[in-house]
Amino acid sequence: MNMSDSLHATTVHLTGTDGADIEAYLATPDGEERRGGVVVIHHLPGYDRATKEMVRRFAELGYDALCPNLYSRQAPGADPSDAAAAVRAAGGIPDEQLVADVETAAAHLRGLPRSNGKVGVIGHCSGGRHAVLAACHADLDAVVDCYGAFVTGTPAADYPLNVTNLVPLLPQLRAPLLGLFGKNDKFPSQDHVAELDEILTAGGKPHTFFSYDDAGHAFFSVDRPSYSVKAANDGWERIETFFADHLGA
């Protein structure tokens, strides 16, 4: 736990495994204590203000936190919403690229001077799916999936999706998972959540899920009508506890 709430936040540049320049937002607590790291995966609408606020919150909680701009290659320096639109029109980002960029971010966090070597990952919405995807490949110590759609569940045959579910990859999940969901959400629905619970239980994968009454999708989003103060406050407390358990010094 950060003993003061002083922190430093800045833009850094990472070099991707393909050599690409990746802009990233880094927030670090002031102070000398050893600490874990958190990779924050931004949602489909991009590398935006709300996501950067979360990055700073993790630093306030005592973690080095880093959010790579997943759209750095396609739209460097662009307004987040313009970048998201451009990437979307171009077909989105490949899963392999996401995994590589999370690995790059995790390596950067582990190389920071006060790192304790542990790194977790968190994502919301599309980032929730991305967080689980990353944890099926990368060396991570904890993963938080906030209402990621298409971790489980099969889209209808005529549904023009560029994503697949992660069911075939779940046996590879390498980190304990905290899942936070809204009971009124349709994607992921409570059936999707139950399916994920069953698969992980059968596979002996440690996981803890909470589904909130009176909450739908995107209940953490403070700047959207879907925000639920009750679910979000409880969810943040559970994230704090989960990361303290798995990323603590």
Partner: peptide
């Protein structure tokens, strides 16, 4: 949810 659906022309 993020629908991921995008139609272009």
């Amino acid at each position: 949810m993020c629908t991921y659906i995008t139609v272009t022309t």
